[in-house]
Design a protein around this nucleic acid. Structure first.
Length: 585
DNA sequence: GCATGAAGGAACCATTTATC
DNA sequence: GATAAATGGTTCCTTCATGC
């Protein structure tokens, strides 16, 4: 029995070296996490500063001029802001990548160094052990007590596995990479721990004590931490790992240094009593809201597996004046992302406000069938009336926890006749790219109408200077009467007597053809209202500007939408309901 | 054969989120 | 604001392996 004991100094050396590594890696982790939190906070702050600067410059100009800000200036300011935001985001990402690379390299360098050291020790000690038994047993390794040899080799390998983080070799998987002192767990008179934990001895009678917590997800466990941790590992957050207690220790265990059975009992009595009488709470970041999680430095909850693919492709920053596919289940149609201000680049004269998407917050939108304004924006309001979008609301900014829940103003290509298209809001999760050059895109409903619109109206606007575009639209009133579009401001136009359902206003606001008799006005918005008002007095097709096209089922007025249904017989109430649910219109 | 411990399933509860 | 759905932690139970 003397030979195996000769390995003990080696084991101690291995464990000492391994402990050093664990401490080092823990420190590196802490430094890295702190750096990330600071960098993220700085990024959010810088984003908000850019947006605030944009708002301020815009407000200053308006104050100086005393009139509405010129479109060219507005566009220039917006482009400048967008460029600054893009540059900021790019720098932030590059710096984050660099920090991660540096961290990984430092950890790997230390682990390689320790692994080489331990490997050399293990090789040397094992050779020495075998040599000793070879001398006393005629050189036959088989004569060595396999149990003793196995135990001692395991001891050595245990150290190796800790250093090399290879928890796949049976008992070796129990080796944790983290340590914590008993004082840190139990607390000291001058420093109480932020969270109290039950200490478990694992394996039973081994003299090794652990607390279990998941730092990655901010999850702490209650009276039965082993079972709680095992269940947590078996959840989707950890890829449905096994519920094995050894895995729980190896993955979430923190070895409590300086703990004895008596100390563990003392700690556990107090903690369990605290849990029972309510004086101690079990912290679980999974039970916090997304905003609170972000505030505390935890990432968003992993989406359900069924949503992972979908969410990974969420478009949170779609290009304006570009067609995407808006999808609700298997129902799709092209949608054109509208600019926040001037909608001329999208081929629509006027501004986003002229579309009628904004209504007074105080009015009863729900009763009138108009959707609530998305919460993702800060709105420019005057006298309770929304005039436009100022920027992203808190949490929805780039990199914010709610970025994926953004909604965007769109023109829905839901008819072959673009003059019957509607405007509404579409969620980021329901957007996907639309490639007009992809033959597969031809299967998307109204693909051709969208493509024609894009070529004849959007690209046309890009090809001519802005002022000319406005002039062209106005001049076109005579020569392209049925081609040009102005937005009808639903808020400004009274319900026409011809409405089949007075008081029921569409969730979507259709765009209207510009009549040839339209007078040229100074303000595009005013122009749009005038035209729209007159348009309602014209003998337009049976479809009215305020047709509740998304009204579900039997509630839908039969007259106004009938032509569309006749053109697209597949568009029944279910489809419209799906759209109403999906694009928030 | 019995006792014990571990693994895993299922029910229950708490919480968040989405929808109406 | 109410409700349903989804998710995760806790608890209880059954099954199985192991040691005596």
């Amino acid at each position: 029995m003397t030979a195996p004991l000769s390995l003990l100094p080696t084991t101690r050396q291995v464990e000492a070296k391994n402990a050093d590594l664990r401490e080092l890696v823990t420190q590196l982790h802490r430094q890295y996490d702190a750096q990330e939190r600071l960098a993220n906070a700085a990024f959010v702050e810088a984003s908000q500063a850019i947006t605030a600067n944009f708002d301020k410059q815009r407000a200053d100009i308006v104050a100086q001029l005393g009139t509405a800000i010129p479109e060219a200036v507005e566009t220039a300011l917006r482009q400048k802001r967008d460029l600054e935001l893009e540059a900021l985001e790019r720098r932030h990402q590059e710096q984050a990548d660099a920090r991660k690379r540096s961290f990984d390299e430092r950890v790997q360098r230390h682990m390689d160094e320790v692994y080489s050291y331990i490997n050399a020790l293990a090789t040397s000690a094992t050779k020495e052990l075998l040599d000793q038994h070879g001398e006393s047993n005629g050189g036959s390794p088989a004569s060595v007590s396999s149990r003793v040899k196995r135990a001692k080799l395991d001891e050595v390998n245990d150290g190796i596995s800790k250093a090399a983080d290879l928890p796949s070799q049976g008992d070796l998987a129990n080796a944790p990479q983290r340590t914590v002192t008993f004082e840190e767990v139990y607390g000291a008179p001058d420093k109480q721990p932020q969270h109290r934990h039950v200490i478990v001895q694992y394996p039973s009678g081994s003299g090794k004590f652990y607390i279990l917590r998941c730092d990655e997800h901010g999850v702490h466990f209650g009276e039965h931490p082993l079972r709680g941790a095992a269940k947590h590992l078996a959840s989707a957050q950890h890829g449905n790992m096994t519920k094995a207690h050894a895995t729980a220790i190896a993955t979430l265990g923190h070895l409590v240094v300086g703990c004895t059975e008596a100390l563990a009992d003392k700690n556990n009595r107090e903690v369990i009593e605290g849990f029972k009488n309510g004086s101690l709470k079990i912290f679980n970041a999974n039970n916090l809201s997304m905003a609170k999680r972000a505030e505390l430095g935890f990432g968003p909850l992993d989406p359900p597996s069924s949503q992972k693919t979908k969410q990974s492709a969420i478009i949170t920053n779609p290009a304006t004046c570009t067609f995407y596919v808006g999808s609700v289940g298997e129902l799709k149609c092209p949608v054109l992302i509208l600019p926040w201000g001037d909608t001329l680049p999208a081929g629509i004269q006027g501004t986003l406000a002229d579309t009628g998407l904004f209504r007074e917050p105080a009015d009863d939108r729900k009763q009138q069938g108009i959707p609530k304004l998305p919460k993702c924006y800060r709105y420019d309001e005057e006298g309770g009336r929304v005039k436009g979008i100022l920027g992203w609301a808190k949490g929805y900014e780039a990199g914010g926890p709610l970025e994926k829940k953004r909604e965007f103003p769109v023109l829905c290509a839901d008819d072959d006749d673009y003059r019957k298209w509607t405007v509404g809001w579409v969620k980021a999760a329901h957007l996907s790219p639309l490639d007009f050059g992809d033959p597969a895109s031809r299967n998307i409903p109204f693909y051709k109408a969208a493509r024609d619109y894009f070529v004849t109206r959007v690209l046309r606007q890009r090809a001519v200077p802005k002022q000319q575009s406005h002039d062209r639209l106005r001049e076109g009133a005579s020569s392209h009467a049925t081609e040009d579009i102005v937005m009808k401001d639903a808020a400004a136009v009274p319900n026409n007597a011809s409405e089949s359902s007075p008081g029921r206003v569409s969730k979507c606001v259709p765009i209207m053809p510009k009549p040839s008799s339209t007078p040229v006005s100074v303000s595009p918005a005013t122009d749009a209202r005038l035209i729209a008002t007159q348009a309602l007095n014209l003998k337009t097709p049976s479809r009215s500007a305020f047709t509740p096209i998304n009204a579900a089922g039997d509630a839908e007025p039969s007259g106004p939408r009938a032509p569309v249904q006749a053109m697209n017989p597949t568009r029944g109430p279910a489809l419209r309901q799906a759209w109403a649910e999906g694009i928030g219109v």
